[in-house]
Amino acid sequence: MVIHPFLIKFVGSVTMVQDMMLKKKFLWALHLGIIVLAGCSKKSVVSSSGSEYKEDLASVRPRYEYTEPTFAKKTETAVAPKNNNVPRANVDKPLYVNKRLDTVLDTLAKQNKSIRYINGFRIQIYVGNVRQEADAAKSYIYQAFPDLNPYMSYSQPTYRVKVGDFMYRSDAEQYLDLVRQQYSSAVILSDRVDIKRSMMVNPASESN
């Protein structure tokens, strides 16, 4: 009896399909078994943990004693009147500020009185080596301009004669024109001047 080769291939393919179906069924059964076992194991753990456990732990637990805090009421009554009475007594008086202001003004006035010299200007009328000429320049200022004070300084071998205590350069310029009638080389220089003597200078009256 001769079997057709097509029949042999068909039978072989059928057996292969059956084998694959069996393998799939086996795998499905294996997965189901694992899931069931896992559920059973969880239930067993839960059931084992859910068993009643009784033990007295009161002797092991720490104990704390609670004490209620106490507030001192005496400090509130003692401090309140002191803060209200001391500073407000002087602040509310209008004369308190005036007294403070007077003391500050007095100190400023004393400081201003102690300041004698400020930066100002003087007219230099003579520079030379002859003492008699320097003295003659001083005497000329005493006679022609009595309100100006001459100042002579000596730095070997030179004599310098400066006149006036001017706070402003404009005041010195008014005198400069008058002084140059006698000393044509006179110039204005910045210098430290006496405050009181600068108040006594009156360029307007001399220029008239």
Results as ranks from 00 to 15, higher is better:
80 A>V: 00
85 N>R: 03
74 K>L: 09
42 K>F: 08
64 Y>N: 01
132 Q>N: 14
2 V>E: 02
86 V>K: 04
44 S>R: 01
72 A>C: 07
43 K>N: 11
83 N>M: 09
49 S>T: 15
99 K>A: 13
99 K>D: 13
10 F>W: 00
163 V>Q: 08
132 Q>P: 06
196 K>S: 12
177 D>F: 06
130 V>T: 15
121 F>Q: 07
122 R>H: 08
117 Y>T: 03
202 N>S: 11
106 D>S: 14
20 M>Q: 07
136 A>V: 06
46 V>W: 13
203 P>M: 06
119 N>M: 12
88 R>K: 05
114 S>G: 08
129 N>F: 11
24 K>G: 05
91 V>P: 00
62 P>E: 00
169 R>S: 05
125 I>A: 06
104 V>W: 10
73 K>V: 03
149 N>P: 00
191 D>R: 00
71 F>S: 08
206 E>F: 15
149 N>F: 11
10 F>T: 00
134 A>P: 00
81 P>Q: 02
180 R>I: 06
70 T>Q: 09
78 A>Y: 01
192 R>G: 08
5 P>Q: 04
31 H>V: 12
142 Y>A: 01
20 M>I: 03
15 T>S: 06
87 P>H: 02
179 V>I: 03
72 A>I: 08
20 M>C: 06
117 Y>P: 00
112 N>I: 10
146 P>R: 06
165 D>L: 11
83 N>L: 09
88 R>W: 11
26 F>H: 01
70 T>L: 12
204 A>N: 14
46 V>E: 15
182 Q>V: 13
36 V>E: 10
180 R>W: 11
106 D>N: 12
158 T>Q: 10
57 L>R: 10
152 M>L: 13
76 E>W: 10
188 I>D: 05
91 V>A: 05
141 I>N: 04
185 S>T: 12
17 V>S: 09
180 R>F: 10
89 A>S: 09
56 D>M: 01
205 S>R: 06
193 V>Q: 01
104 V>P: 06
1 M>W: 00
111 Q>T: 15
92 D>K: 14
140 Y>H: 01
202 N>A: 09
157 P>N: 03
154 Y>C: 02
201 V>I: 10
19 D>N: 02
120 G>M: 06
57 L>N: 12
176 L>E: 02
121 F>Y: 15
44 S>F: 12
196 K>R: 13
126 Y>K: 01
69 P>Q: 14
98 N>W: 11
101 L>H: 07
109 A>F: 08
94 P>I: 05
23 K>L: 05
93 K>W: 02
197 R>E: 03
96 Y>S: 07
190 S>P: 05
51 S>L: 15
88 R>H: 07
189 L>V: 15
111 Q>K: 04
170 S>M: 12
